[in-house]
Amino acid sequence: MTEDEVLSEFRAAGALLEGHFLLSSGRHSAHYLQCARVLMNPNRAGRLAVALASALPRELRSRIDKVVSPAMGGIIIGHEMGRALQVDAIFVERPTGTFELRRGFDIQPGERILMVEDVVTTGLSSREAISAVEGAGGKVVGICSLVDRSGGQVEFDIPYHALVSLSFPTYAEDELPDDLAAVPVEKPGSRKKP
């Protein structure tokens, strides 16, 4: 699937939004990708997951024992990636602010994990989820996401692959351009900021 085809899927689902958005990372942007909306259609979610799984190097695909995703945003694409890779898919969640395994999910010592996200902007959530997986005894062998919102700037110590890389500008609170600051801010993500 080409980058244009991926963005067409987002547009068709009404998932490419414009306005003033406070991202989960704490940064502001004039653009927001509402992955929950693009993934609400099971056929579309499956197509995107198959495309993402196909984009992973064969040697990485063959080493994956389980898919883990951070809740909320990564759950659907993580589940579909598990289906595409024919492995179990579980998720970590933050009931008290720190990612942890719940719901009877477990990771066996040394189990090779693919971390699957919907969107990566700074990599903070991914790093926090990786810590939870490693704390449970797993070994994260790769990370993937539908969208790399950093435009290729985010770096991890393990292989990272995204279906599409975008570089919509993001801003700290004190860096907002006047035209963006004039637009009321929306917080469309699932993670609450204090």
Rank of each mutant, 00 (worst) to 15 (best):
R44W: 00
L114M: 01
A89Y: 13
E59K: 12
I143D: 09
Q153R: 15
V154Q: 10
G110Y: 11
E134W: 05
G46Q: 13
H31S: 14
V92L: 05
I64A: 04
E100D: 10
G138D: 12
D106G: 12
D157E: 14
I75S: 04
D148E: 03
R61C: 04
L163F: 01
L39C: 06
A53W: 11
P57Q: 04
A84K: 08
I76Q: 05
F168L: 00
S62C: 04
I143Q: 01
L48S: 01
V164D: 09
F168K: 02
E59T: 12
A53C: 03
Q86A: 14
D106V: 13
L39Q: 07
G138S: 07
E80D: 05
I90L: 02
V92A: 15
I77H: 02
L56P: 05
A89L: 13
V141I: 13
L146V: 05
V141P: 02
V133C: 04
I158N: 03
V38F: 02
D148C: 02
P57C: 03
P57R: 02
G78L: 04
V141C: 00
A89H: 12
G152M: 10
I76D: 03
F105Y: 15
L146D: 04
V67W: 09
L52I: 04
T122D: 06
R44S: 03
T96C: 06
G74P: 08
A162F: 02
Y32C: 04
D157W: 06
R83G: 00
G74C: 05
V147W: 00
T122F: 01
S150N: 11
E111S: 09
P70C: 03
G135L: 09
E117V: 02
N43C: 00
D88E: 15
L146Y: 06
L124N: 13
R58K: 12
I64F: 02
Q34R: 11
Q108I: 11
R149Q: 11
V38W: 04
D65M: 03
S125Y: 05
E59F: 01
S167R: 15
R63T: 14
V68I: 14
R47I: 02
A84N: 05
V92N: 10
I76L: 05
N41K: 10
A55K: 14
I64C: 01
L56A: 00
H31I: 14
T96D: 13
L60E: 09
V140K: 11
A89C: 01
A36N: 10
S165E: 12
D106P: 00
I90G: 04
S131Q: 15
R58P: 00
S167K: 14
A89R: 09
V50S: 12
N41G: 02
T98P: 00
P42F: 07
R37C: 00
L39P: 05
C35V: 07
V133Q: 06
G151Y: 14
R127G: 01
E100R: 15
D148Y: 08
S145G: 01
L33I: 10
A49K: 10
S131G: 14
V38K: 07
V116R: 12
S145T: 14
E128H: 11
D118R: 08
S54D: 15
V38D: 06
V50T: 14
S167I: 02
E80Q: 14
G97K: 10
G123M: 08
E111H: 11
L56I: 06
M40L: 07
V68R: 12
G142E: 08
C144L: 04
I90M: 09
V116Y: 13
M81T: 03
V164S: 07
R58T: 08
V116F: 05
V140C: 03
L52Y: 06
P70H: 04
F99D: 07
H31D: 01
